[in-house]
Nucleic acid binder design. Sequence first.
RNA 1: GCGAGCGUGGUGUAGCCUGGUAACACGCGAGCUUGCCAAGCUCAUGCCCCGGGUUCAAAUCCCGGCGCUCGCACCA
Length: 547
Amino acid sequence: MNEMDQEEIAKRRGLYFPSFGIYGGVSGLYDYGPYGSRIRDNIIRIWKQMMLSEGNIAEYDGTAITQASVLKASGHYDRFFDYSVECKKCHTKYRADHLIEEAGFEVNLSQSWLDEKIRELNLKCKNCGGELGPVQIHKLMFHVDQGNDQEGLFLRPETAQGIFINFKEYYRFFREKLPFAIIQVGRGYRNEISPRKALYRLREFNMMECESFFDPVNEKWIREPNDKEEIKFLTNYGKELTMSPKEAFDKGIIKSQPLAYFIGKSFQFFLRIGIDKEKLRYRQHKKDELSHYSSDTWDAEALTSIGWIEITGIAHRGNYDLSRHIEFSGRDLYAQRTIPQKKVYEDIKEIDFAGIRKKFGKDAASLIMQIKEGKKEIEINGAKVDISEFISIRKEEKIVDRENFIPVVIEPSFGLDRIIYTVIDHNLHVREESGYNVLSIPREISPYDVAVLPLLSNDDMEKMAIHIFQDLLLKNINAIYDDSGSIGKRYARYDEVGITYDVTIDHDTLKDNTVTLRHRDTKEQIRIKFDEIENRIRFYPWNGKIN
RNA sequence: GCGAGCGUGGUGUAGCCUGGUAACACGCGAGCUUGCCAAGCUCAUGCCCCGGGUUCAAAUCCCGGCGCUCGCACCA
């Protein structure tokens, strides 16, 4: 299936389409239509269900509008600018900060500094030796004008930060035991310079993120990594390996147990929603490719008609985020671990308030305040006063069996839109015999459970079909009804948007309440009583094969 | 942001060079066909990205804007 086919079908069939179409659209913004929205929701539902079924994962839902101070702590505020220079002669573009780094200098991220440094070092175009133009700035975060934060507000460039900020809420929720994880499904916003390729690079996009927290001395998830599935790995040395995540961890290819665990988990998720495992690999980031905070990152990449694309990143973020938020907010975002009991002696300062009051009278209040502030030199009206006789230090014995630490984080982060693109790419086929399209996505993510179709458009059959349609709706089955055009045309219509089953009402239905159940992939049909439909599409879904 | 190409019914395209009634296929709708895999027939619906200019006349030529595709760069 080539790239244009997907976009054409997506537009024509209501999977997704450019936003604000009647006004010409805005690049990098796409809407999901009637079928696309349902596929998307089904994928989210499965993902949440798989994650929450771990038992020690809880859900979070934060706002997209974010205080500048959060993004200063996270590092986005400083790093979400691109500084570029362009060669005046051959128009090759460079990152200004990269040029200076390559010249061996520490970079100070300000536009004027970069500009001056390039002149000072007399840097030239690497391509043609031409003179470089002025340093240009590109803001990669959307700014929201307003808010009481002096810097204004921003749309979040990732959903993760809200989770880190609320770490303590969840730490309490999990009764102060690690490991646990927090998931969030939501939108992120990046002001891409040139969004491209439909759902591949968007300005507003859907993410499904999971932040899992560990004690660094016991970095271990509650379950073992998958040892059943053979997965293709591409290491940062460029070596290709095929093995299970468990084996990859045991052999030290993946250094972190939870990282291996979530690779396995994500793999099972991908298979379940219909991604082709032959077109899936996990590629380790090279040293120079790693984010500023990460010591190891593996990207799940899918081979699609636009090449290998990153659909999920599983990153070891260390304790970067929490330690930054501790530093910037001054708040306690520590976890605690139990340690062997030990005795600690603490100095307790005892102050003889009565004695001070007796000696200094009305000046006592000022003195006591100064003592409490911890001042070394106590004075009254500029004159030093000796108050040592009123202060005594007492040693107190204390038993300590807990200590603070900053948890480390493993983050699997799923790019939902790219995943949807990949699922469609991997499942959209052209029927050889007819040349028509079939979207063979798994039943679980089908936009509707079933299409209800009268064979003929006559009153009796339509009446019966609508009756069956209503009955299915009452059973909470997502059914869609259609009596337009010929039966073959309708089958083709629903095959193309991935609906797995069609129920057809024909002459026999009127006589004996049976219908035919057709399967999208095999085009086979079986005849069943209409009150068995639910059973055969929900509880014991028919696989489309006739014995 | 630069360079190149492009923007015509719901979708895919022709027409543009050489200005003069906008075309084809599919789709969608109504009907006939009583038919199980986009069948056929009849009828109907519906389009020149936006703004300005040139001209008697602009889908067509010119300018600007917006958008798309590819390449460069970017992808934190």
